[in-house]
Amino acid sequence: MTVLGSPAATRAPRSRGRSMPARGRAAVVLKYLSLVLASAVVVVPLAAILLTSLRTSREMADGGALAAPHDWFNLHNYAVAFTDGHMLRALGNTAFILVFSVSGTVLIGSMTAYAIDRFQFRLKKLVMALFLIASLVPSVTTQVATYQIVNRLGVMDTRWAPVLLYTGTDIVSIYIFLQFIRSIPISLDEAARLDGANSFTIYRRIILPLLKPAIATVVIVKGVAIYNDFYIPFLYMPDDNLGTISTSLFRFKGPYGAHWEVISAGAALVIVPSLVVFLALQRFIYNGFASGATK
């Protein structure tokens, strides 16, 4: 039996008080350790690409992937990758596909979501079910039929082939716009109709301006997917003159199969445009994702 005020009674609370800060410090250490590891997973490959792109062939044979180059201003690999890899033409083709695909996705997706939410028509539930089924079907299972359709439309081996595919197969953007439109009060539509506005005027002057957060989200998600996509440009645009940044970088493995310094320089050139866009639009990117997450 412990008497109140004895040494045993006074030592117990102190031991519990010391154990709580110890667990707190361990939690803080684990938190920062996980952040360091996650940052290393992202930063180390980028650092390896940058360091490799600045080295020569002899330096590649002598050192590892993270070895520092002797000349930090060696841009010869970048010149070879830019000229022999036709990166400027690849960026132009990618920009053409990106602009038309994203614009078409925003226009068609927002109009479709507006029609589904604001209009009542037969088989509406069936249409929604078909959209859901289409989003669940793996795209690779329909590539044979898709290839035949694109070939018969006469757009095979042109830049319009990926534009049509990117624009017409994005069911996710329709659901994103649909969630935002459902948060817009129908009273705005009714007030506009009392003023004599038709459905298209309501969509153009009321619905579309209020969809800016949704448009930002769709542009970000769709733009990144198109910029990084390799399969569709490689399959539907086999011509070397129609190469995008992904397919042009892939073709380095032919004449430059063993020259990793040139391949790394080409990869760095591909990373730079997306990095510049992210740094310039990071405020809109964060706002678009935050708005999309709260709807």
Rank of each mutant, 00 (worst) to 15 (best):
S248W: 00
L281F: 15
F177N: 03
Q282E: 11
H259Y: 04
G85Q: 08
N77V: 09
N287Q: 15
K253L: 13
I116E: 02
K125E: 10
L210M: 13
A267D: 04
L98I: 06
L275D: 02
T105A: 07
Y32H: 14
Q143Y: 05
T105R: 09
F82N: 08
A197D: 12
A192S: 13
D71K: 10
V262T: 10
P138A: 02
L33R: 02
E59W: 11
I171S: 06
N198Y: 03
D195F: 10
D189V: 12
V3K: 12
G292I: 05
G196I: 06
S15K: 08
M1N: 07
P138M: 05
I97V: 15
L275H: 02
F284V: 03
L30G: 14
R182D: 03
M1C: 06
T10S: 10
S291N: 07
I49R: 03
V102Q: 08
A48F: 09
A290F: 02
G168R: 08
A192D: 09
D189F: 12
Q282I: 00
G109N: 11
D229N: 14
L208G: 02
D189P: 03
R122M: 02
W72D: 01
I171K: 03
M237G: 00
P255T: 10
G109Y: 06
K124I: 02
V41C: 13
K125M: 03
L98F: 09
A113F: 11
A27D: 03
K212Y: 12
T201F: 00
F250K: 10
A265M: 01
L242W: 07
I174F: 01
G243A: 14
L235S: 03
F250Y: 14
A22F: 14
Y114D: 01
L210F: 06
R18W: 12
G64L: 04
F73T: 14
P7A: 12
E190L: 13
G196H: 11
F250C: 01
S6I: 01
M87D: 02
S101L: 05
N241L: 02
Q143A: 06
V80T: 15
G288T: 08
L33E: 04
A145K: 05
T247N: 09
Y203D: 01
V272D: 07
R11N: 04
G24D: 04
G104F: 07
